[in-house]
Design a protein around this nucleic acid. Sequence first.
DNA 1: ACCTGAACACCGTTCAAGT
DNA 2: ACCTGAACACCGTTCAAGT
Lengths: 219, 219
Amino acid sequence: MRGEARRESGEHSPPADGSARSRRSSRLPQQLVAAAAALIAKKGPQGFSLREVARRAHVSQAAPYWHFADREALLAAVAEQGFLELAAELTQVWTEEADPRGRLQALGAAYVRFALRQPSYLRVMFGPEVPVKTDHPALHRASRKTLILLTAAIADAQLGGVVRAGDPDELAIATWSIVHGLAALLVDGQLQGKGATPDQVETLVATVTGTLLSGLAPR
Amino acid sequence: MRGEARRESGEHSPPADGSARSRRSSRLPQQLVAAAAALIAKKGPQGFSLREVARRAHVSQAAPYWHFADREALLAAVAEQGFLELAAELTQVWTEEADPRGRLQALGAAYVRFALRQPSYLRVMFGPEVPVKTDHPALHRASRKTLILLTAAIADAQLGGVVRAGDPDELAIATWSIVHGLAALLVDGQLQGKGATPDQVETLVATVTGTLLSGLAPR
DNA sequence: ACCTGAACACCGTTCAAGT
DNA sequence: ACCTGAACACCGTTCAAGT
């Protein structure tokens, strides 16, 4: 036990003098997260080891412990990174598509495409490697953006009259569920043969989001 | 490399004489699967180790290798067990609920309840511990039962006129997606506060299956 | 403050050896 | 056929020690 290991690079208090030296000198934390993300993308969350990450960053096996409490904390940082990238892509879609119905559809499609493009990211974001996300505040914050964004899209669509009345939070959860479910099943290979080609994926996405939108429609 | 380690207890050929001795003498494989399932249920898929399982079964650390090719093969057997139990529960629901619409609703609710009752099972069944399910034929067979069952329920509901026309396979995937998505998000703690109490869960299940059924309805 | 080197307990897997 | 005991390479984590 190191008592209170710094869990994130930004959390230790800077010197009170505010000098130039107060800026972080080492970029090791970011290098470790990047190396970990690359390793996971290449070999899956199973192939990941803290020592291998340290080797790839050209530091000793003990070095990561200065910046991350343990293996799980580094994985949580990777998961956080994944949620931030997902949020960025969804926000991008939001700005590109003004129509509330088309926007919901586009958000769903973007979510599934993100998952298929970065399957290992999705597995760290939602898998059991980080069992209790609330143990990692930054990760928790990043992950909640997803539901917040979907809820806003639902509320918007309600105002536009294309989604029925009801608790936007619950309808957003239904939206997240169907889109995340399709992404998870595809990534886990449960739809073997059904989602093999990009064409088949697009068909599935269309069917699923179509069913969703029809289920959300008024009356 | 042991050349061709027996992956499942049933796969090695019995003696040709068909004597009473041809029946399996050892129940170790089943004991290992049971011990592994119990260990995973207790400490999550992360706390699982082959050596610990062997200890709990009171055999040496090398013993499991006679019955399972490696750690992943034992996990695959646990996942298979999970899919078989899920299929049994869904089949039970099928027989209890004759109305096609109520049946779809009940199947969805049963799926989510199974996940919440056995979260660790769900994680092994769908998580990255067994990366390629098709590498394990028995697991693959068991997992496909889920979609087959849902597809039958959809086809039935189409005949009953409560689900619109369309490829039953695709509509079943939409159904599986929304139900599995809700289960996965709940198990992963992504709906913190929303699915804490059993009441809240039932409300979510009702909203989600309601949205789904309305989305599947004709016209 | 940040990193190294050595150490400890643990793990997956293999293999010769037993019965 | 089925299991044990010992071994190997690897891992997560800690800690004294360096700068």
